[in-house]
Amino acid sequence: MSVLEVDDVVVEFDTDAGRITAVDGVSLHLDTGETLGLVGESGCGKSTLARAIMQLVPMQRGSVRLEDTDLGSLSRRELRRMRHRIQMVFQDPRGSLDPRMNVSALIGEPLRVHGIGDRAERAREVAEAMELVGLPAAVADRLPSELSGGQQQRVGIARAIVTDPAVLVCDEPVSALDVSIQAQIINVLDELRDELSLAMLFIAHDLSVVRHLSDRVAVMYLGQIVETGTASEVFGQPRHPYTHGLISSVPRADAESAARLRTARRLVLGELPSLLDPPSGCRYRTRCPYATDQCAEAEPPPEPVGPADGLHAVRCHHWRTIVSAAPEPQESATSQELAI
């Protein structure tokens, strides 16, 4: 049973230059204890999708069901009562914390807002959350400005988990942190997911981090999910040329590094088109080396890859014939081994 069901969500915005569709018919689901990684480049709509799921931006179409409740059908008051079950961790820990509140007040704030527990219970919950995210009790009285970047992000995470949510939405939670701090925060999220059976939507542009944390992944391009499946399917045997291009773009510390970047350059041509004037048919066709007339005429529907009841799906007219889009055989062998 899915704890979160997102169905055919469309989010449109008016900008100075005209109306854009930032999220264009996205569906996804999350099971308890599962992490779904959402990847894509700036402007692909992944953060807007997160905000739509959190009911922070209005949707033009579609629904978000949290634990079988349609969030869009709730009154403001009812929605506020549901909010403690879905929480968010932001990119900039400092900017999301009130500089005048100390650590324990910051972590206890969501409990007070939602009217959860009495004073003593809240203090217990705060202490427990601090322990879960690895904050020493000694920092409880400190202000955000007296904390390191890593500690600030731990406070951000503690605030999100203190209300015992079913779903945690993390929007680039480590991209503002130095590498050694990143590793600590990734481990915290990894441990929390296991200990609290959280369902996690993990948004990041760093594919290595996403692969490390995610059970499944969804790849977004110009507002649509172009490929989704288990992390080992999508990253090990990508079917969409864009997914393959993204993966090849990751600079790896090995001797094939530059060669892989040249592959990426062949698979992702030119520049990102404007959302004001998205391409007809397949959104990716203007940058795709395999595009044909068919791609301009018809929008490819999501098609299952492999068994029809499997999780791997791709939106590409030509995925069956693009054999060259498969990565080096050695790597696909590894991903098959891992899948067993």
């Binding site: 050694s180 990143q182 590793a183 990894d190 290595s208 490390h212 990253f235 990751v250 590894t334």
Partner: peptide, 16 residues
């Protein structure tokens, strides 16, 4: 320190 793309989940990372 950093997760390497070619590794799927290989347990916890090793922060310094």
């Amino acid at each position: 320190l950093v997760p390497r793309f070619e590794d799927a989940h290989t347990g916890r990372l090793h922060p310094i």
